[in-house]
Nucleic acid binder design. Structure first.
Lengths: 349, 349
DNA sequence: TGTTAGCACTCGTATAACGAGAGTGCTAAT
DNA sequence: ATTAGCACTCTCGTTATACGAGTGCTAACA
């Protein structure tokens, strides 16, 4: 159970076990390791080493006298130290950039859905895309327009390029003049603020006695969260459920898929948590907080849209191609960063 | 194979077979039918009748000397003629209305997600909610506001209560004055039109040589579909995948679930097709166009939002509680109709 | 001390045989 | 037309068996 480094030979054998198991999904025998690792040793030697690896908790035996399969800790060691430079075939690279350019000009939800689809297709795994939390998006401009005696249209554009719009009720009628004046005032107050902050500011402003345009602004503030879908708007896009079901580890008991798909919050929580701003975060099996999620691994990357971040990720059995998928997610993170920062500025590459 | 009516006794036996099979998921024996149907006949008699029903294709034997299970045609006969008045327990009724009132004032996507959740919880099935096609929604008002030198915010509100907004690029700068005039003109043109029609009208108008505000309106029209997510905006909300996996018919081979979840279009097509404006449409197993969907049944209802219709539905194995689920979907259709027609007019019940 | 060949042992999987039980289909009696 | 009785069929669970893959161990070797 020491944390010390493995010898080079141990590392090679661990790698071989992982690579082979990822391919075949069956316990890996010592002789298979000999073949794959290229090591010039006998299977007996490999067995000795494997025993050592097992004692360290890196691999395990499903039952006595079976081959070895990687343990969560083994995957962890592999991901952290053995995996080597992440790798994404040129083929996939070009495909991704190509498909992404087509998406220029489309709204964020569409882009994210399509990107999730791309990811799941390339990864052959369940892919998930998380929209940036609009809560911390910075408001560029708001607009309030009267529709009829009791209803107004409100629209917000964020620096991130996201927009929100909704119709809200206001008891007393407002004419266009008033609405324009109110809009101007509103923008003075909230333009340049994050959505979350703006809500607080507005609540105070509107609460004051001499607040102008109160009859218009009060209802707006009251209905703020519902109207703009602000709070729970970290929408999740799934794609590629079919891949999940194809993995032998889930083909008999697919209940995990149900758990994942049905609990947006659970997943959002997971996806939000670990990822570092820049890097790709890998969560392996038992490392997940949710008990239900033990047995699956997550690879999550983030992309910036203005001041906020969204996430893209891949979910699959712990037996997954970490190197390739980390490469994929990382690469796509970068692409999306560019995509959203060059924003509408057309093709600046 | 005659289409003639069944005798009363035959109907009772068919009903018993279906009811029992729906509960137990196991082939129904003649003696079980005797118990359940309340008929005062021997099991031998029931066997004779069952043979007749089998020859008509209403029920079938999984293998020789097993009980009978309903065939698709049997379910069909049951749904069309035997099911009797649809039934939804008072408990569920009140629950639905209660949960629905809480959703007042929330935007359509949120409402639909929550409704799907409610449906799946009550039905214990995979539920699906389809947003109304915005294509045929009637535009109430559009608004164009300049943001900076090259970008404008556009917002549309539909009579249905739906709204769309987006940022678009326009080469030459526009001041607020111009934008207001353009907005006025725009509303003259498209207010009161369906979104789909408005697109065509605008395209012609903008194509004309002396079109005013061309520098502003041209880009708007060009980016119309992408901007407003108009064409492919029949968003699908799924809920309750876990229920699907619990059914014994899918627990071993869950690949169907993958197919359903991954092919939004396939499903949207299905859901769009059959439902009559007012009624609840039931599609049973092999009646589905898509081969992949044989083995599952659909119950679909519609709700009106202004001039457009959306759908809610339930997907499950053919072995489902048709009476209850038709009741549920029908009831909810009505509730949603009211919900959206009383629109923002607060509590008019 | 590390490595390896050889071999006995373990354990899962596949296959067949078997019995029990459920349910039908048929026949003959009512 | 209905039904009691009975033989027949088919599934399912259990047990026995053989097979094979793979290990762990021991002893020999560099």
């Amino acid at each position: 159970m020491t944390r010390a480094d493995l010898t080079e030979r141990e590392e090679k054998i661990l790698t071989a076990v992982i690579r082979d198991y990822v391919e075949t999904a069956r316990p890996v025998s010592s002789s298979a390791v000999v073949k794959r690792s290229g090591l010039d040793v006998s299977s007996a030697t490999v067995r000795n080493v494997m025993r050592a690896l097992e004692e360290r908790g890196l691999i395990r035996q499903p039952h006595t006298s079976a081959g070895r399969i990687p343990a969560d800790e083994g995957y962890r060691y592999y991901v952290d130290r053995l995996m080597g430079p992440v790798l994404l075939p040129e083929r996939d690279r070009t495909r991704l950039t190509a498909e992404l350019t087509v998406l220029r000009g489309h709204d964020l939800a569409t882009v994210l859905t399509e990107v999730s689809r791309m990811v799941s297709d390339v990864a052959h795994q369940l892919a998930v895309g998380l929209e940036p939390a609009v809560e911390s998006s910075v408001i560029e401009r708001m607009e309030v327009v009267p529709l009829d005696a009791t209803r107004c249209l409100a629209a917000v554009s964020m620096r991130s390029g996201q927009t929100r719009s909704a119709v809200f009720e206001c008891a007393s009628p407002a004419d266009r003049q008033t609405a324009q004046a109110a809009t101007a005032l509103l923008n003075d107050w909230v333009a340049g603020l994050a959505v979350g902050d703006a809500e607080k500011i507005l609540a105070t402003k509107v609460g004051e006695k001499d607040c102008p345009f109160a009859s218009l602004l009060c209802p707006l503030v009251e209905q703020w969260p519902a109207l703009f879908h602000f709070h729970d708007s970290e929408r999740v896009h799934y794609e590629g459920a079919r891949y999940m079901l194809r993995h032998p580890e889930f083909s008999d008991d697919a209940s995990i898929l149900g758990e994942i798909l049905d609990s947006e919050e659970a997943l959002a929580d997971l996806v939000r948590g670990p990822a570092d701003p820049q890097d790709v975060a890998v969560t392996i099996g038992g490392e997940n907080r949710r008990k239900k999620m033990r047995g699956v691994s997550l690879i999550v990357g983030s992309y910036r849209v203005g001041a906020t971040v969204g996430r893209i990720g891949v979910i699959g059995p712990t037996r997954m191609r970490y190197r390739r998928l980390v490469g994929l997610v990382g690469h796509l993170s970068g692409l999306l960063d560019d995509f959203f920062s060059s924003d509408g500025t057309e093709e600046r590459r």
